[in-house]
Amino acid sequence: MKKFKIAFFVLTIGVITAFTTLNPSGYEIGSIATDFSLKNVDNKKVSLKDFEDAKGFIVIFTCNHCPYAVAYEDRIIELDKKYKKLGYPVIAINPNNPEKQKDDSFDKMKVRAKEKGFTFPYLFDDGQKIYPQYGATKTPHVYILQKTEKGNVVQYIGAIDDNHSDASAVKQKYVEEAIDALLKNQEVRIKTTKAIGCSIKA
């Protein structure tokens, strides 16, 4: 019975998706990611091209107010500490419009970055222009980019790991597994994952 139910469910979903237009914007695996020049919490502009020695980037759309983003703050710091020296620094971007979410204002970003001791740039997507190009829909939302001659190629999109609520119960560290593979010139095994997050307020 259960098998039939699953088959039926898959079929229904298939039919629905076939007739719904999927979000046409945003990057897929293999897309070339745009560079940007966004204001960091130290008031200086940051671009990907500034990181001459980087092999790639862990671009994370995140913010102050979202409990899921907050739950991952310490793990994002750990990612940066571990992978910056291996050539993959974290670049955090707050995509929210502070007029819609006042806790995500540039001033409050500065406060949060200082409180938590962020070791990475925490950039403000002023005017909300960058996140739609990436196709981010929520915070946190990770894009791993690999620097190549063609540009910064998207190699992974999705969640940091498989347990937002308890870092000690994590079974799969998606971001770490992806970068470890890239560092060994191997193909990323799990290229996309999904996680619950706060919708981006534009």
Binding site: K138, A159, D162, N163, H164, K194, A195, C198, I200
Partner: peptide, 20 residues
């Protein structure tokens, strides 16, 4: 159920995971 990647697409294939 913290392993959201295992169930988000069972709710709807096109769901990115954002709420509402």
């Amino acid at each position: 159920d913290p392993d959201a990647n295992s169930w988000i697409e069972k709710v709807a294939k096109e769901w990115s995971g954002a709420i509402p």
